[in-house]
């Protein structure tokens, strides 16, 4: 199964809807609650990063029998120093953004923590791509 959502930069009203839609779908098709929770958190953080830091992007999720692949691609300013951005607490979010409850500098660390495989690529002035994989628990009897 493959789902794709468009995410607009600066849209804090609609943002979170891709993650919410994906979480509901995962639960509907009977994915384990803990896995759905992890996938939802990874997707939500990826979605908010596009809304906050980029101009336009897509979030997709591919559900395979043994794994879930979450892919977020955006057109945006990109990240010059990825190791710095991956640090807990590192954030370039403005004061306005912080007042809305974002900008803890935990988004990328959360994404890495809740996924089994995590990759990030970015080109300054072009955009950022994040790919996270969550391995599904083996079904009994398989």
């Amino acid at each position: 199964m493959y789902l794709e959502y468009r995410v607009d930069g600066g849209d804090f009203q609609a943002s979170g809807q891709a993650a919410a839609g994906i979480k509901r779908t995962l639960r509907q098709i009977g994915i384990d609650a803990e896995v759905a929770r992890r996938a939802a958190i990874v997707t939500y953080e990826a979605e908010m990063n596009i809304a906050i830091h980029a101009y336009l992007g897509t979030i997709s999720i591919e559900i395979l029998p043994e794994r879930i692949i979450i892919q977020a691609d955006d057109e945006g300013p990109g990240i010059a120093d990825i190791p710095a951005a991956m640090q807990v607490g590192y954030s370039t979010a403005t004061e306005d953004i912080r007042e809305m409850g974002f900008g803890a500098g935990l988004g990328l660390p959360n994404m890495r923590r809740y996924s089994d495989e995590f990759e990030i690529e970015s080109q300054v002035g072009v955009g950022t791509s994040v790919r996270a994989v969550i391995i599904l628990p083996a079904k009994e009897g398989n």
Binding site: S15, G16, Y44, M100, G101, A104, L106, G107, R113
Partner: peptide, 28 residues
Amino acid sequence: DLISDLLAFTKEKMLILTGLISPQIIRA
């Protein structure tokens, strides 16, 4: 009081106490 804190430091079935009035706290 920060959304990523909720996502990082809570488990399922936890009570969330917050001073942040935002639809995003419900989404999180």
